[in-house]
Design a protein around this nucleic acid. Structure first.
Length: 643
DNA sequence: AAAAAAT
């Protein structure tokens, strides 16, 4: 089979590992567990089922039955419906349908959806909600949620929103693309709406944001700002973004017009605070996106400075929410300095889109990499897969390497553009635009593009240079396979990557991927206790576990290991899912049928959109919808009813 | 040792 075949190969029938039994919240809450109490939906390695407070046979479904298991096909909806893009949408174009589907028979198995494993630990955990309406988020916000066509909350939203609205601090593990941004934006906007706002309090030009959202890259801050703005549309809540590489004066002007929610990268924020143009004195909500990245070696001092050494109210007097796909123990420990009596939440996905990403590893020595890449891209092109729909991201290790490869690809007839931190911001944004539009369907990127960015139509992620860290790999390949589409991730493995072998093997096995035998050999010969997180205690590649449990028992180190080391089916299925490469789609074979029918060689079919759109939690508010509907540079088939 | 993030 050629590489190109892999792209066109019909999506593999996902094999579902044994799923843990769902525990209804009303039952879970009666759980007499010690503090921190737990409502693990699956049999946690630490707690056998008897500790869940009832015989396992009594743990059934029921919660999910509250939904009518119906699927209004989007074709049945008002033809005036268009994706919500903020400003230019008149209210009357919005279909006011409720969150609960009515009518026709359903192809969606809600029980499967309910099985998505969730672990929440901490004191007095607010129960999850089934619908956005179950929590009073305010009329304005509810209207925007409908505009975004969020039919019902994603798993992470169902759990995180009630926790956040209750004012609790939160540490949440959930993959980017699973509706994480909304999960912290909704409660923040809701909270800001309920807070008396008075800008320019003291007649100076100091801005006093009520909420601060920090992210590790400028582009990601932009993306969050756009989302938040959309959610805050016509609510009177003002969202401003601040990041480097662009004139600060313009950002000051925005601040002067009033700011409630400030989205920022750390450097620029510190600058603004030091110039006394921003004060954190009134911050009531603090959110860190990609929190593990924000607290790792490179960022930690800056974050500590912002959170602890400026005028930010201390934990307990502000609400702090940390979101990330991965939460290593060490990072949890650091993070707990910023939190007060927090709830730890890990949301996974059954039959996660890992199943939709085919992971391949090729043994390629450094010297052969470029040649190999060209061959790979040629095969892809020959197979008709490199048309307007298929975008490819090529990850490299260094900025210089990115430039070199961009040039090399262009020389060989592959329109490529590089993005990395040595480019000026204008170039970075231009590169991203050029890539998204399909003008240069190959993006050569450093890790600047590894996290959080939601780029529709990425069919293929190539790890030209593998990262040192398996987390980075998880984040990188998560750029594809989004919104229920199949994706391909190819890695060039060289002798240099030996230390990654073991973690890579484990990851691929958990995701039911074929592991080449030579890779097993690398894994075996690699030294135990290498730099891979998977080899270290606490090395949870997927989401994580509340480190407070480990601390309680005093066996902090072996606990996490056993969670992933044991190939116990229920645990394993959990491990495989939050891992998470990608979007949270309903785990349902019909869904997959529809989604897989739409692989990248064919334009998105309207049937695909029907399913994806109704189960909107696979789609970020409008990035995907909007792209599909308007970016005809892809030559997309635009579903009827969309402008 | 690299990338990111302020000027």
């Amino acid at each position: 089979m050629t590489w190109a075949d892999v792209l066109t190969e019909p999506t593999r029938k996902p094999s579902y590992p044994t799923r843990p039994t769902y525990t209804p919240p009303q039952v879970r809450l009666h759980n007499p567990n010690p503090i921190p109490s737990s409502y693990a939906h699956y049999t946690h390695p630490r707690f056998n089922s008897t500790q869940l407070g009832q015989p396992s046979s009594a743990r059934g479904r029921g919660y999910g039955r509250r939904y009518s298991s119906t699927t209004p096909r989007w074709t049945a909806k008002s033809p005036t419906q268009i994706p919500f893009e903020g400003i230019h949408i008149a209210d009357d174009t919005i279909n006011n349908e409720t969150n609960v589907g009515v009518g026709s028979a359903s192809a969606i198995n809600f029980d499967a959806y309910e099985d998505i494993p969730v672990e929440a630990t901490g004191d007095n955990i607010p129960p999850p909600v089934a619908a956005f309406d179950d929590i009073d988020l305010g009329e304005g916000l509810n209207r925007n949620i409908r505009r975004c066509k969020y039919v019902k909350p994603t798993p992470v939203q169902r759990h995180a929103i009630p926790i956040a609205v209750a004012g609790r601090d939160l540490m949440a593990c959930a993959q980017t693309g699973s509706g994480k941004t909304a999960a912290f934006c909704f409660p923040i906007i809701c909270g800001v709406l309920g807070t008396p706002r008075s800008h320019f309090v003291d007649g100076t030009r100091v801005a006093y944001p009520l909420a601060l959202i920090l992210s590790p890259t400028r582009e990601l801050s932009c993306q969050i700002h756009d989302e938040a703005n959309k959610f805050a549309f016509k609510t009177g809540v003002r969202v401003v973004v601040a990041y480097g590489g662009t004139p600060i004066s313009q950002q000051f002007r925005k601040l002067e017009r009033g700011v409630d929610i400030l989205v920022a990268t750390p450097g620029r924020l510190v600058d603004m605070i030091e110039r006394a143009r921003v004060s954190l004195r009134k911050v009531r909500y603090l959110a860190l996106d990609e929190a593990d990245r924000m607290l790792d070696m490179g960022f930690e001092p800056q974050i500590r400075k912002i959170v602890q050494q400026m005028d930010m109210p201390p934990p307990g007097t502000r609400q702090t929410m940390l979101f990330s796909a991965t939460f290593p123990n060490e990072i949890q420990r650091l993070a707990s300095d910023f939190l007060s009596n927090y709830i730890f939440l890990a949301v996974g996905r059954v039959g996660s889109s890992t199943d939709l990403i085919t992971q391949r590893v090729e043994l390629v020595q450094e010297i052969d990499k470029r040649k190999h890449l060209i061959q790979l891209l040629r095969a892809q092109k020959a197979n008709g897969n490199h048309g307007k729909h298929a975008l490819t991201v090529v990850f490299v290790e260094t900025k210089k390497g990115a430039d070199i490869l961009e040039h090399w690809l262009s020389m060989h007839g592959f329109p490529a553009i590089a993005i990395h931190g040595d480019k000026v911001q204008m170039e970075r944004e231009r590169a991203l635009r050029s890539f998204k539009s399909g003008a240069t369907p190959i993006l050569v990127a450093t890790d600047v593009a590894a996290r959080g960015l939601d780029i529709p139509h990425v069919a293929h992620v190539i790890n030209f240079d593998l990262p040192k860290d398996i987390d980075a790999y998880v984040h990188r390949i998560g750029r594809t396979g989004r919104a229920g589409k199949s994706g391909l991730a190819t890695a060039f493995f060289s002798d240099k990557n030996q230390s990654l072998a073991r973690a890579l093997v484990e990851l691929m096995q958990e995701a039911n991927q074929e592991v080449p035998s030579w890779l097993f050999q690398y894994a075996e010969s690699s030294t135990y206790g290498s730099t891979n997180r998977a080899n270290k205690p606490g090395g949870s590649k997927f989401g994580g576990y509340d480190f407070r449990y480990g601390a309680q028992s005093g066996s902090d180190t072996s606990y996490h290991l056993s969670a992933h080391g044991n190939v116990e089916s229920s645990v394993d299925s959990y491990a495989a899912s939050p891992g998470a490469v990608c979007c949270s789609v309903p785990a349902n074979s019909d869904y997959y049928a529809a989604a897989s029918a739409d692989s990248y060689e064919t334009p998105a079919s309207s049937e695909y959109f029907a399913v994806a759109n109704d189960y909107n939690y696979s789609l970020p508010p409008s990035a995907e919808c909007h792209a599909a509907a308007t970016e005809d540079s892809y030559g997309s088939v635009v579903p009827s009813g969309w402008d």
